[in-house]
Deep mutational scan, measured.
Amino acid sequence: KKIKIKIKVYNPETKEVLELEIEVSEEEAEELAKKLAEELEKKGYKIEEVEI
């Protein structure tokens, strides 16, 4: 079964909002969402919402 992940991120420095969407297997979904959120935060983005 495929799971659709939508991530909306906001960069306070540039006032930019990015929306990302990807489909992955159920097993990958939670781990991938967690890794993406961590990487984006390292780059200065503030995570507003992660929906699985």
Rank of each mutant, 00 (worst) to 15 (best):
E38D: 09
S25K: 05
K42L: 07
E26I: 12
V17D: 05
E28R: 14
V24L: 03
V17H: 08
I5G: 00
K1D: 08
E49T: 12
I52H: 03
L20M: 13
K4A: 12
E28C: 14
A37G: 06
K2S: 10
K42N: 08
V17Q: 13
T14H: 04
P12T: 08
L20F: 12
V50T: 07
E30M: 12
I22W: 14
I47D: 00
E27S: 14
I3F: 13
V9P: 00
E39H: 05
V50Y: 04
I47W: 02
A33F: 07
E31Y: 08
K1A: 05
V50M: 08
I3A: 15
E30P: 08
E38I: 06
K6R: 13
A33M: 09
K6E: 02
S25E: 15
E23R: 12
K35Y: 10
E21I: 13
E41M: 11
E39T: 04
I47R: 01
L40P: 00
A33W: 06
V17E: 10
Y45D: 01
E27V: 05
E13S: 13
T14S: 13
K8T: 12
I7T: 00
E38F: 12
I47T: 02
S25H: 14
E49W: 10
V24R: 02
E48K: 07
K34G: 04
K15Q: 06
L20D: 01
I5A: 01
E49C: 13
V17L: 02
K43G: 06
E21K: 09
K35F: 08
A33N: 01
L20H: 15
I22S: 03
L32V: 12
K35Q: 09
K8I: 11
A29G: 04
K1N: 11
K2E: 07
K35E: 13
P12N: 08
V24D: 04
E30L: 15
E39N: 04
K15G: 13
A29S: 14
E23A: 08
E23N: 06
E23C: 15
Y10A: 04
E27N: 03
I52S: 03
P12R: 05
N11M: 08
E21A: 13
K46P: 01
E30G: 11
I22C: 15
E38Q: 11
E16D: 05
A37F: 08
K42D: 10
K15A: 09
N11P: 03
K34H: 04
I7H: 00
E41Y: 07
T14D: 06
V24F: 03
K6Y: 11
K8F: 02
E30C: 14
E13M: 14
I5Y: 02
S25P: 08
K4T: 11
E13H: 11
V24G: 15
K34S: 04
K6H: 13
E31H: 09
V17K: 12
L36E: 01
K6G: 02
I7A: 02
E49H: 07
A33V: 06
G44R: 00
E49D: 08
I22R: 10
I52A: 02
K6P: 00
A33S: 07
E28Q: 10
V9S: 12
E28F: 06
K6F: 04
V9D: 00
V9T: 07
E51Q: 08
Y10V: 12
L32T: 15
G44F: 01
E48V: 06
K42G: 11
E21G: 07
P12D: 08
I52D: 01
P12F: 07
V17Y: 13
K42Y: 04
A37V: 14
I47L: 05
K2F: 02
E41D: 04
L18P: 00
L40A: 04
E16K: 07
E51A: 13
E30T: 08
K35V: 12
E27K: 07
E23T: 07
E19I: 15
N11H: 12
L20C: 11
I22L: 07
E19L: 11
E30D: 05
E27G: 10
E27A: 15
T14L: 05
E26Q: 15
S25Y: 15
K4M: 08
E13C: 09
A29R: 03
V17S: 11
E48I: 13
I22N: 05
K4H: 14
A37L: 11
E28N: 09
L18I: 13
I47G: 00
E26L: 03
L40C: 09
K4V: 03
K43D: 07
V9I: 07
E21T: 11
K35P: 00
T14Q: 03
Y45V: 01
I52K: 01
E26R: 05
Y45C: 13
E26M: 15
K4L: 09
L36Q: 02
K43F: 05
I22H: 07
K43R: 12
K2C: 15
A37K: 08
L18W: 05
L40H: 02
E26Y: 11
E30A: 11
E31G: 15
E38H: 10
E26H: 09
E16N: 07
K34N: 05
Y45L: 06
L36V: 10
E41H: 06
V9L: 12
Y45P: 00
A33H: 04
E39L: 08
A29V: 07
E26S: 12
N11K: 14
P12L: 15
E16M: 06
K35T: 11
L18Y: 13
K15T: 13
E21F: 12
L36W: 13
E48P: 02
E39W: 06
E30I: 15
Y45R: 00
V9K: 01
E51Y: 15
K2V: 13
E30V: 12
K46S: 08
A33R: 05
E19G: 03
I47A: 02
I5V: 08
I7L: 12
K6I: 08
K6L: 04
K8L: 02
I22E: 09
E39S: 08
K1L: 14
A33D: 02
K6A: 03
I5E: 00
K8A: 02
E39C: 13
E19M: 15
I3R: 12
V17I: 13
V50A: 02
L32F: 09
I52V: 07
T14M: 04
K1E: 07
T14K: 04
I7K: 00
L36Y: 13
E48A: 03
L18E: 05
I5S: 00
G44V: 00
E16P: 01
V9R: 01
V9N: 00
I3G: 06
Y45Q: 01
L40V: 02
E19H: 04
E31Q: 06
E41I: 14
S25V: 15
V50S: 03
G44N: 01
K43L: 04
K1V: 11
K1I: 07
E31I: 08
K43S: 06
Y45K: 00
V24E: 08
V50L: 13
K43E: 08
K8R: 15
I22K: 06
E19R: 15
K34Q: 14
K43W: 08
L18S: 12
E19P: 02
K8W: 04
I3E: 03
K46W: 11
V50P: 01
K15H: 12
Y10L: 10
L20I: 14
E39G: 02
E27Y: 07
K43V: 06
L36G: 01
E41T: 10
K42W: 07
E39V: 06
K15Y: 12
E49S: 13
T14F: 03
K34C: 14
A29Y: 03
K34W: 03
E31V: 04
E19A: 09
T14A: 05
E39I: 06
E28A: 11
L20R: 03
E49P: 01
